[in-house]
C-alpha cells in the first residue's frame, strides 16, 4: 500500500537529511507504528506519502503508484485515498460535530443524501453517537480527536495516517483512541501512526518502524519501543492507567 524505495529528503542543503535512504513497505491492512524522537523524520514520512513534499532521491509509492508521477491536478485524488489525523485535531470551531465530518464529504462533492446517511454511521464507529450537534469546544480532547478520526475515514480511504494522535491526550483517553484506530484497521484500512509514546506501542504489539535522525534503524513485526520521554506522561502513570 505504501512503499518507500531508498527515499532521501533534504530540506536544507547544510543540515542532515530529514530522511536518509529509507526503504520500507507497508502492506494493505497493516497497522504500523512509526516511532522515533522528535526530528527523527516521522512527519516528513507522512508528508511524503501525502505528496505535500517531494522526495529528494528515491521513490514513494502509494497504492502502487509512484507519487512523483502524479500530476498536480491528480493530487486531490491521491489524498482522497488517504485519511489524516493530527495531534491538534484541526476541527472547525464554528461547525458542529456532524458538520465537521460532513465538511470532508461536501468539499469533494458528495450528495446530500449520501452525507446524511454516512455521517451518523461514521460517528457511531468512533463512539460518538448522539453528539452530532455538539460544538467542538463542548467536547473533551479525546472526543475531539474522535471527531477528527471520523472526518478522516468518512470518505473510506484505504490508508489512515495518524501523526501523534495521542500527543495531547492523557493515557486513558489515548487507549480509547487506540481502540478506535484498531477497529478501523480491522475493517481493512491500512493504518500508519507516528508516535513517540512507548506505552501505547508496547501495549499494542504491532509492527514498529523506528527512525533515528532520518535513518530507519528497526522494523519489527510485533515490536516494542523504548524511546525518550519527551514531555510525555511518565511510563508508570500510563501503565497504571492501562
Amino acid at each position: 500500500m505504501i512503499r518507500f524505495d531508498n527515499v532521501t529528503k533534504v530540506y536544507d542543503q547544510n543540515s542532515r537529511p530529514a530522511l536518509d535512504s529509507v526503504s520500507v513497505e507497508i502492506d494493505r491492512g497493516d497497522f504500523a507504528f512509526l516511532v522515533g524522537s522528535s526530528g527523527s523524520g516521522k512527519s516528513t514520512f507522512i508528508r511524503l506519502v501525502l505528496k505535500e513534499d517531494r522526495a529528494t532521491r528515491g521513490a514513494v509509492y502509494v497504492a502502487g503508484q509512484n507519487v512523483a508521477n502524479i500530476p498536480s491536478w491528480r493530487v486531490p485524488k491521491l489524498r482522497r485515498g488517504i485519511g489524516v489525523v493530527f495531534q491538534d485535531f484541526r476541527l472547525l470551531p464554528n461547525k458542529t460535530v456532524a458538520s465537521n465530518v460532513a465538511f470532508a464529504m461536501q468539499v469533494i462533492g458528495k450528495s446530500r443524501a449520501v452525507i446524511r446517511e454516512t455521517v451518523p454511521e461514521v460517528l457511531k464507529t468512533v463512539g460518538l453517537e448522539g453528539k452530532d450537534h455538539r460544538m467542538p469546544h463542548e467536547l473533551s480532547g479525546g472526543e475531539q480527536q474522535r471527531v477528527a478520526i471520523a472526518r478522516a475515514i468518512v470518505n473510506k480511504p484505504g490508508i489512515l495516517l495518524a501523526d501523534e494522535p495521542t500527543g495531547n491526550l492523557d493515557p486513558t483517553t489515548s487507549m480509547g483512541i487506540m481502540n478506535v484506530l484498531d477497529r478501523i484497521n480491522q475493517n481493512g484500512t491500512t493504518v500508519v501512526m507516528a508516535t513517540h509514546d512507548n506505552v501505547i506501542v508496547n501495549h499494542m504489539r504491532r509492527r514498529v518502524i523506528e527512525l533515528q535522525d532520518g535513518r530507519m534503524v528497526r522494523d519489527e513485526a510485533h515490536g516494542i519501543y523504548v524511546g525518550s520521554q519527551e514531555g510525555q506522561p511518565s511510563t508508570e502513570a500510563k501503565e497504571s492507567a492501562l
Binding site: 491521491l78 482522497r80 488517504i82 489524516v84 484541526r90 465538511f103 468539499v107
Partner: peptide, 17 residues
C-alpha cells in the same frame, strides 16, 4: 486557512478550494 487546509487534506479539487 483552517478550512482550506482541511479541504486540501481530504482531497478537494483546486477548483472547489
Amino acid at each position: 486557512r483552517r478550512e482550506t487546509g482541511i479541504m486540501r487534506l481530504v482531497g478537494a479539487s483546486k477548483a472547489v478550494i
